[in-house]
Amino acid sequence: MKKRALIVDDNGNNLRMEKDLLEVAGFEVFLARDASSGIAMAKKEKPDVIVMDVRLPDMRGSEAARILREDKDTSDIPIVFVTASVMAEGKEEIKNITNSGFIGKPINTRNFAKEINRFIK
């Protein structure tokens, strides 16, 4: 059975690149361009992993993660933040979210799928 990944990013290029890399690695991929549709998609599809940007148009990725953690349908899904905010302040924002990880942009295309895989039990 294919692993299922939800990618939440408002940047079309990022969505496309991450989708390609994960699909090439054998993932089934769902896409969302903002937090609220991402949360809805997560509840509906219950993916194995959520790959999420931190700066989203409707709310911060950290806020979306808090909502996902409070919902029993999504509280256990690992979240991997892919963010260009690699400075200390950016990491501080997400460090207390359970079952989550961090990948800085620009991403290393050669081991991106491997990194994501590490978060799936």
């Binding site: 290029n13 700066r55 260009a84 905010s85 690699v86 950016g90 942009k105 991403i107």
Partner: peptide
């Protein structure tokens, strides 16, 4: 840093 990394990505 954020704005430069996004296109570099």
């Amino acid at each position: 840093s954020h704005e430069l990394r996004t296109p570099l990505n």
